[in-house]
Design a protein around this nucleic acid. Sequence first.
DNA 1: GTCTATACTTGGATAGAC
DNA 2: GTCTATCCAAGTATAGAC
Lengths: 185, 185
Amino acid sequence: MGTRDQLVDSARALLWERGYVGTSPKAIQQRAGAGQGSMYHHFAGKKDLALAAVRRSAEELLTAADAQLSTPGTAVERITAYLRREREVLKGCPIGRLSQDPDIVADPELRAPVDETLTRVRARLAEVLDEGRAAGELPAGLDTAALATTIVAVLQGGYVLARAANSPEPFDQAVSGVLALLTAC
Amino acid sequence: MGTRDQLVDSARALLWERGYVGTSPKAIQQRAGAGQGSMYHHFAGKKDLALAAVRRSAEELLTAADAQLSTPGTAVERITAYLRREREVLKGCPIGRLSQDPDIVADPELRAPVDETLTRVRARLAEVLDEGRAAGELPAGLDTAALATTIVAVLQGGYVLARAANSPEPFDQAVSGVLALLTAC
DNA sequence: GTCTATACTTGGATAGAC
DNA sequence: GTCTATCCAAGTATAGAC
C-alpha cells in the first residue's frame, strides 16, 4: 500500500473517531507514519484529504448495506438482516457522525458525499420495502419512502444513544422496537 | 444577567453549534463579551464551564419534553405532539449532538449529563406508552421500553439526516414513518 | 471581579534541500 | 516523493496588576 493510501486510511480512522474539527493534519501524518511534505505532496490540504477519505468510507458503507439488502429472502427478512448485522455500535456511523461536524455541514463540498450516501441508503431501503409491498408482504397503503427514512433514522439515532450511554444496549433496543412495529403491520 | 450567566449562555450556544472540540474558551469569552480573567475567575476552565452549560441545556430539554408529554390526551396524541412540535431541526439536538464529540464521550463527567438526559426522556416516553397500553389504546404485548427508545432514536437520527441533507425534510419523513407504524399497531 | 501580559502547545500550511 | 525548517494564528491556561 502506497503512502497516499496510508494517509487516506489514517484520515478515515481519525474522522471516524474524532470528526473533522477534532482531527489535525499532524495527527493524520503521525498515524500514517508520513511526514508533512509527504501529505502536502499528495493532497492540497486537510480538506482535500478529508474529501478522499469520506468518499472512500461512503463507498464501503454503500457496499456493506447492499450486502444485506440484496440477499435472497423477503423484504422484512432482508431489512432485519441489515438492522441486526454486526456493527461497531460504540464507534458510531463513519458517515452519519460527520453530519454533526460544523465544518462539514458548512461546506457544500464536504457535506455532499455525506448527504448522497445517506440518501442512497434510504432509496435502497425504499426499493426493498416497495418489493415487499408489491408481494403483499406489507400493507398496500404503506408510505415506503417515509418508512425507509425512519429505519435509517433509527440506526443513526441508535448510535447516538449508544454512545451517550457508552453501551450498545439502546441501539439494540431501538432496532428491536422498530422491527416489532414493522412485523406487526 | 450576571457575567457568569452570560458565559454559560455563550457556551451553550457554541456547544450546540460547534460541539466541544470545536469550541474554544476564547470564542466563548468573545461571544459573552467577557475577558480571559473573568471566565477563569468563575470557572476552573473549559471543561468546568462546559459542564455548567450542558447541565443547563439538559434541564431545558427535559422541561420542554414534559410540556408535550404531560398534556391531556391519549398516549398516541401526546407522543404525536412531542414528535411534531416546533424544532430547530437543522441545528440538531443540543444534547444528542454531544454524543458525537470524542472529548465528551471519553470523559465520564462530561458524558454523564448527556446520558442521564436521554435516559430520562426514554423513561418518560415509556411511561406514556405504558399508560396507553393500560388503557387498551396500544397492544397488550407491546414492549414499551423498546418502543420508547425507538422513538427517541428516530428524533436523534432525524436530526442527523436533516443536517446531512441541509433540509428538515428527512426529519419530518422519519417522524411520519414511525407515527404511521404506531397508529397502525 | 475583571483586565492585560505572558507562556507554551498545537493547528495548518509553505519553502527549499535532498 | 519525502524530509526538515520555518511561519503565523489559535487554543488553553497562569500571573499579577487594578
